[in-house]
Amino acid sequence: MWDCLLSRDQTLERNGIKLFVREDGDANGAAVVFANSLGTDLRLWDQIIPLLPDGLRIVRYDKRGHGRSSVPPAPYAMGTLVGDAEFILDQLNIRDCVFVGLSIGGMIGQGLAVKRLDQVRGLVLSSTAAKIGTKEMWQDRMDAMRLNGIDAMANDILQRWFSMDFLQHGDLPFWRAMLVNTPLQGYLGCCAAIQGTDFYTPTSGLRLPTLGIAGSEDGATPPDLVRETIDLIPGSRFQLMRRVGHLPCAERPQDYARLLTEFLKEIGHV
């Protein structure tokens, strides 16, 4: 555990859209920026933060349509989500961060590294890929969401998120509540952003330290899909976490924090 020298919430405004940001740790430390998945907010990382080494500047934010950020009407473009992350880092005067992105957060990280290599010196791509699913699959999901709402589909989504063991865990209601409380327009907007994204070519041009993390029971981004993307980046490293699903930081926070800490030490970011 570590004592925070900095702990503050703030709301930054970009073109009329409010983006909620939380900072913890050392204001002068090396920055680690976290971006969460579809249907979650920045609390996704709550269990990870206290397990990280001293001296880091930890930044988390709610992407548009989620958490305490604004909810503009769907659809959203991936370029817009990448631009939001770029704006936040510029506003906070952050350069050379390690960007930790899970699922759509990992797509945002890939796009940001391609666009602003001055902002990102290392990537942790967790439960993500250069391209996730097909346009038809995402269209079917968005159509079903519009018709039935998130609550009606929550159980199916949770089965893709978590291992069979965790589906019996006492914390499951917390994660279900986070999912169903996601604004419908925010969920649909980010679905559209994923639907329109294929980063295979730009990601293959990246040259920076990269760690890939996949869960063996991930029903949303299977390990082979994650590995395929990680292998696009020369010198990258892939780590499989067994008996966890799409949100390994929620199921096994200590193991996830250990992998992240090892990576930060390997690249001299601690």
Results as ranks from 00 to 15, higher is better:
G67F: 06
I94T: 08
L89D: 03
Q47P: 00
G79K: 12
G55R: 04
L56N: 11
G39I: 01
F34N: 05
Y76E: 03
F34C: 06
L51G: 02
Y76F: 15
D41H: 13
I88N: 01
I88D: 02
Q47E: 15
D46A: 15
L42P: 02
A77R: 15
L81W: 02
L51Q: 13
A77I: 01
G67A: 10
P73I: 02
S70A: 14
R60A: 02
R95G: 13
P53C: 11
A85K: 08
S37E: 11
A74P: 10
T40H: 09
H66V: 11
L81C: 05
P53L: 12
P72F: 09
L51P: 01
R60S: 08
M78Q: 07
R95H: 12
D90E: 15
G67Y: 11
V98M: 09
S37L: 01
H66E: 06
Q47N: 14
F34W: 13
D96V: 00
Y76W: 07
V71G: 01
L81Y: 09
R64H: 06
V33K: 09
P50H: 09
D41V: 00
L44R: 02
I94C: 05
D62E: 09
G55F: 08
A77H: 13
S70C: 06
D62H: 10
P75N: 09
P53S: 07
W45Q: 10
R43Y: 03
L89V: 04
F34L: 14
L81I: 05
L44G: 03
R95Y: 00
G79R: 13
R43W: 00
G39F: 02
F87P: 00
V98C: 10
G55T: 12
Y76L: 10
D90P: 00
